[in-house]
């Protein structure tokens, strides 16, 4: 029994440094994802049809194909055009473009969820387009989109494990190496990996539950 526990500690000790890599990928991609989501989400409701069309093509392109295919394409196929990314940036880019496309739908949906009458009221107060968006629409849409973006970040965390397949040393990759060098570790390695991912996800899960609860309560205070 004690043997067993020591095995777990040994593996944990070896896994943890890679945990930082996973978190680094998660945070970098999350920031980029939300940036892209906002740009594309606003683009989808732009007054200019050319911008609407371009952002729609981007969203459908990335939602219509697989994340792993996109990652491989960026890492292995793009160099054919002389564009080379490190495994880290290829991973981050694929994750952000993919989850950014999904998150942009959350942004777009929540903007469209704001009643038209709010826009009319701000027109009646003679606000500019930008003021309407900044002062009236976005602050309200933001509250609606938070749970969706939170869920998106949990999906993103799960997605980070794919970078192991383009040889980036994240948790999953390190787990595979440990398992490969010591096959008797197989069961504990994967159990620990799942638990570690769950622990990273836990704050996000709790956050999303709170946001969902407060969103369903409606708008009373900001």
């Amino acid at each position: 029994m004690w043997d067993n526990i020591n095995v777990y500690f040994d593996i944990l000790h070896k896994l943890l440094p890679a945990g930082w890599m996973t978190i680094k990928i998660l945070v970098t991609s999350a920031l980029l994802t939300y940036l892209i989501a906002f740009i594309a989400g606003l683009g989808r409701v732009s007054q200019f049809s050319i911008i609407r069309t371009l952002t729609m093509i981007y969203v459908e392109l990335f939602r219509g194909t697989s994340l792993l295919v996109q990652m491989f394409w960026i890492f292995f196929a793009l160099p054919a055009f002389g564009v080379e990314f490190s495994a880290f940036w290829a991973g981050v880019l694929a994750l952000s473009l993919n989850y950014g496309a999904y998150a942009s739908e959350v942004v777009r949906g929540s903007i469209l969820a704001i009643p038209k009458t709010q826009t009319e009221a701000s027109i009646a107060l003679n606000m500019t387009r930008w003021q309407r968006l900044k002062l009236v629409i976005l602050p309200q849409a933001f509250r609606i989109m938070l749970p969706g973006l939170g869920n998106n970040s949990i999906e993103l965390l799960k997605g980070t494990s794919l970078v192991s397949l383009i040889t980036l040393g994240d948790l999953t990759y390190r787990g595979l190496i440990i398992q490969n060098t010591n096959l008797s570790y197989t069961v504990p390695v994967f159990i620990l990996l799942l638990i570690l991912y769950f622990i990273i996800a836990l704050p996000l899960i709790i956050l999303v539950r709170r946001l969902e609860a407060s969103a369903s309560k409606g708008v009373a205070k900001v």
Partner: peptide, 15 residues
């Protein structure tokens, strides 16, 4: 729901 399907796959296939 909140852990990667890839790792779950390894668990099912290897462990």
């Amino acid at each position: 729901r909140s852990t990667p399907p890839l790792v779950q796959l390894f668990f099912v296939y290897f462990a």
